[in-house]
Design a protein around this nucleic acid. Structure first.
Lengths: 121, 121
DNA sequence: CGCATACTGAACCATATGGTTCAGTGTCTA
DNA sequence: TAGACACTGAACCATATGGTTCAGTATGCG
């Protein structure tokens, strides 16, 4: 029934809805980092940062690998194409919708003009 | 301190993280609708739909107007430009990052080659 | 070995989310 | 004026989120 459902989009948009997580993504876009690095940079406990990284990882936006004591986080492999595509499609709908509203407004104006003439006849 | 904060992005990405709300946006991109229309289409109580519309409205993605008994919902005025811009910037970071990783890999290969020669000398 | 480091998991807390029901209020319309 | 209709708000519920502390476990290093 609800064919519009899309768990991937749910997860990635939810992941992006937090400023810390967006910051982590930007950071990892510049260089890999450990949980400790990220926790310090974002002024948060290790446990707290671990949770954020978990959310990003579950959304496929980050991959991590533990070597020795250290878990290294990097971006990848999703480039948010699907999310871009959704926004792009919405933008098109939006444009079309506003064109249509413009037309409706014009049509109303035209009719008013005609009605005006009729009334003067 | 946390200059990366952005309540607008928080709200819109959070609004987009629910399939029903994405559906409502697409629907409103095609035509205006009342709360009742939307509730029926998405198989939900009026109260439930009202909440979703509230979230979209607070995020600036939908505007509503009540005339008589009926509250009419339409899209606007935000075209999600800021959100597109964020994703676009991330894509660029992502590209740059992967280019860099490629270079690192090449550099490693080159060094291995050199080391191999050295060892044979 | 022994200590410091780096993470991890459980438990807790306050608040938000996604949904419901129920009891209204206000607006058409016959 | 009576009933139907459209919405609204409060209250409730289960679960998730964003954070913490505390008590581990595993690893590296002198």
């Amino acid at each position: 029934m609800v064919q519009y459902a899309n768990a991937g989009l749910d997860a990635s948009f939810a992941a992006l809805s937090d400023a810390t997580r967006r910051g982590v993504l930007e950071q990892l876009g510049r260089a890999e980092a450990s949980i400790t690095d990220l926790a310090e940079k974002f002024n948060m406990t290790l446990t707290g940062m671990k949770k954020h990284v978990g959310v990003l990882e579950r959304a496929g936006l980050v991959i991590t690998e533990k070597v020795g004591r250290v878990r290294t986080c990097k971006i990848g492999p999703r480039q948010l194409e699907e999310e871009m595509a959704w926004l792009e499609r919405y933008r098109q709908l939006w444009d079309a919708r506003f064109d249509e509203l413009d037309k409706v407004v014009e049509e109303l104006k035209r009719k008013e003009l005609v009605d005006g003439r009729k009334q003067r006849e």
